[in-house]
Amino acid sequence: MSPNEKEPLSEAQRESALEAIVGSDRATIDPAAKLLSGDPTTTDRLIPLLDTVSSADARQGILYALSWHGDLRAWELMVRILANPQEDPVVRGQAAEGIAYMFSQVRPGTARFESAAKALLSALKDPSLEVRFGAIFALGESNHLPFVPVLEALVNDQTPVPGWGETIGEKAAAAIESLTWGKT
């Protein structure tokens, strides 16, 4: 459940947010995404929007809302978006974050897990810091200890990630901590 959820949306609020999230104004997209993130009844309406909306801001907002729904129907879509170099890096980073929030529902060795692992490991080499940062976070949420050596290789990378206040190495160290917490 979203930390943004306060009380169920009215039908008017839901419709207004769905209209705003596909707009062109970041100032209305962000609040709409936050509202919709707390309303998992909108999953069926948000997923198809990704087939028609091309604005990076709107696509990121839609993925943000879907990330909090925890609905695995969005999993393959997020994996495809993450793996698509034609997508805007901010959209791909948001897809990685969405995968992170759903990893607890996916078991290692399954096709779902393997497709996400392949996309995330590839994203670690992406030229975009936003994409790499999101991939590191997702790997840390995977609960899959074999990712630890991959993350350890990044710990000394002191490249700052604009807008996040952390370096690649700091995020990798946090991901390792997340993976190994309580397992020693």
Rank of each mutant, 00 (worst) to 15 (best):
R92I: 05
G182S: 05
L82W: 05
F103V: 09
V22G: 07
N156H: 08
L145N: 10
G140R: 07
E141P: 11
L18V: 00
E87F: 06
A95V: 03
L66I: 03
S104M: 12
V106W: 01
F133A: 13
G163D: 13
A17C: 06
A172D: 01
Q13T: 03
A138H: 10
L36K: 02
S55K: 03
N84I: 08
A111M: 13
T184H: 13
M102Y: 04
S24R: 13
A173P: 04
F133T: 10
A172R: 04
L129M: 15
L50S: 06
E141S: 15
D44N: 12
A20F: 00
L124F: 09
A153E: 08
G165N: 13
T180H: 05
E5H: 13
R45W: 03
L154T: 02
P108G: 08
T184D: 13
M1Y: 07
L63N: 04
L63P: 01
E19A: 12
E87L: 05
G93T: 06
Q60S: 11
S104G: 14
D30M: 13
M1R: 07
G98Y: 02
G70Y: 00
L139C: 10
A12R: 08
I29G: 00
Q105N: 09
K125A: 14
I99R: 03
Y101W: 11
R26L: 14
A33Y: 07
E97T: 12
R112E: 14
V22Y: 02
T52A: 12
V155C: 05
E76S: 15
A65R: 00
S115D: 15
R45S: 05
L66Y: 01
L139P: 06
A138T: 12
P108W: 04
K118W: 14
V79W: 04
A116M: 09
G93K: 05
T180P: 04
E11I: 05
A119G: 11
E7P: 01
V53Y: 07
A20L: 07
S16I: 03
T52S: 12
I99K: 06
